[in-house]
Simulated assay, not measured.
Amino acid sequence: MDLVASLPAFVAAVVLISASPGPAMALILRRAALRGFSGAVPTVLGLEAGLYLWALCAAAGLAALVAASEVAFLVLRVVGAGFLLYLGVRMWRSAWRSRRAGVAAEPEEPPGTVSRRGWAKAFGEGAVVMLANLKAAAFMVAFYPQFVPADRPLFATTAVLALLQVGIEIAVYLTLAAVVGRAGAWFRRPAIRRRLDAISGTVLVALGIRMATDAR
């Protein structure tokens, strides 16, 4: 298999994967809706940093060890499910508080501005969500070897392919964030924000429960 010849299939697969619904998409959509494009950037970068680390772990064989280890698998599953549940419940609480107050809770920062603390928090949330996602570990182990020729070094080739994937996903997610961010004023209306928080919280709680109860 020639690496260059397989790139179109790799790119197509990555685009389809990045467009699939999941915790990453839920985080990005909510962040872009409430904080605008610039507010979504650290979330996207955090998610992609976590993805790239999983890719390197897969190339080094560590992801396969995690998937095979009962203890590591259980710990990551509990951490990942717990963090998704935490984020989901936090969004539910925000929706409930704003409903009782009659207005949407004020955002931590004005739309379009991101403080250093806010940037680090959003980046960290994205990274933790991706690193605690066992599906990502299993995916990396199965996905990348299909595109690495037998005569190529596994680790170096995987690292390059992962950079390409990260670049594609950043472009896709930031484009989506820019589109959603343009409608930010509508999303930030009290009634719409309450619904957005409620829906986003429900999605993340459902994904957390699924992660906690999913068999291998």
Rank of each mutant, 00 (worst) to 15 (best):
L3E: 08
V4L: 14
V4S: 13
A5C: 04
S6C: 01
P8H: 05
V11Y: 01
S20L: 13
P23Y: 03
A24L: 12
L27D: 02
L27G: 00
I28W: 00
L29E: 01
A32K: 03
L34Y: 09
F37P: 02
T43V: 15
L45V: 10
L47C: 05
E48H: 08
G50F: 01
A55T: 11
A59P: 02
L62Y: 09
A63Q: 10
A63S: 15
A63T: 05
A64C: 11
A67G: 03
S69F: 03
E70I: 11
L74M: 10
L74T: 11
L74I: 07
L76F: 14
L84E: 04
Y86P: 01
L87D: 00
G88L: 01
V89N: 09
R90W: 05
M91I: 02
W92P: 05
W96K: 00
R100C: 08
A104E: 04
A105C: 13
P107E: 09
E108M: 11
E108H: 15
E109D: 09
P110F: 12
R116Q: 10
G118T: 08
G118Y: 06
W119M: 09
A120C: 11
K121A: 15
A122F: 05
A122D: 13
E125F: 11
A127S: 06
V129P: 07
A132K: 01
A132L: 08
N133H: 03
L134E: 05
L134V: 07
K135T: 14
V141R: 04
V141L: 07
Y144Q: 01
Q146M: 12
Q146L: 14
D151G: 06
R152T: 02
P153I: 02
F155S: 11
T157L: 02
A159K: 08
L164R: 05
Q165I: 00
T175R: 08
L176F: 15
V179D: 09
V180C: 11
R182T: 08
A183D: 07
A183H: 04
A183W: 07
G184I: 00
G184S: 12
I192K: 12
I192R: 12
A198W: 10
I199Y: 13
S200H: 04
G201Q: 09
V203Y: 03
A206G: 08
I209V: 13
I209N: 04
A212Y: 06
A215Q: 12
A215P: 07
R216Q: 12
